[in-house]
């Protein structure tokens, strides 16, 4: 019954809090999360793995009228209809022709799924506290709005995107202003 559920939830909450406490103790080399990295031009971006549903090639895209240019249309991913965003034009960059390496990363925040068109997928990397540096106050509104944090890895800098902002309409409106 309701009370049971409630107790279960409480227990789960306590457990997760305990885990977090434990995690705090040896933060520095413990894995925070995994990040899927991808290229847009020469720059490496990342999306945290928990948001990623899958990576697919570019299927035929059905254009939908009445939406901003960066929304390329809708696609059919195993019978689910998913809108696709070209991240290049989303960031105010020039779009390029799709090639064999062009991919769509399907990301989801619970009830909303979006496909993101990227130049190519690079790798899945483990992120620890050591790698993370805070977002600098950049002037480039177009991209910095969407950056959650920056990773300084041995092989270069990677920008991890904030998926909820990428999907959320308010961020879009702010970015547009």
């Amino acid at each position: 019954m309701a009370a049971e559920n409630f107790n279960e939830k409480l227990q789960a909450l306590l457990n997760s809090q305990m885990e977090m406490e434990l995690a705090k103790k040896d933060v520095s080399n413990k894995e925070l999360t995994k990040v899927l990295t991808f290229y847009i031009g020469d720059q490496v971006y990342g999306i945290e793995i928990p948001y990623v549903i899958e990576i697919i090639g570019v299927p035929p895209i059905t254009v939908v009228p009445g939406v901003p240019d960066y929304i390329k249309g809708i696609i059919n991913v195993r019978s689910k209809i998913v809108p696709v965003v070209n991240i290049r034009s989303r960031f105010g960059k020039e779009e390029i022709e799709f090639n064999d390496r062009t991919c769509i990363i399907i990301i989801s925040t619970g009830d909303v799924s979006v496909g993101v068109i990227v130049d190519s997928v690079a790798d899945v990397i483990s992120v620890t506290e050591n790698h993370v540096s805070k977002t600098p106050e950049l002037n480039n509104v177009n991209t910095s709005k969407f950056i959650k944090y920056i990773l300084e890895m041995d092989d270069g800098i990677k920008l991890v995107l904030d998926v909820s902002k990428l999907i959320d309409e308010h961020a879009r409106d702010e970015a547009a202003q």
Partner: peptide
């Protein structure tokens, strides 16, 4: 008939004269 994905609901596609999509 399927509704448009949620992400697109912020745009007024219905007013354009489209009611949904189908596979």
């Amino acid at each position: 008939v399927k509704p448009f994905p949620k992400y697109l609901s912020q745009y007024n596609i219905k007013a354009e004269g489209l009611s949904g999509c189908t596979v």
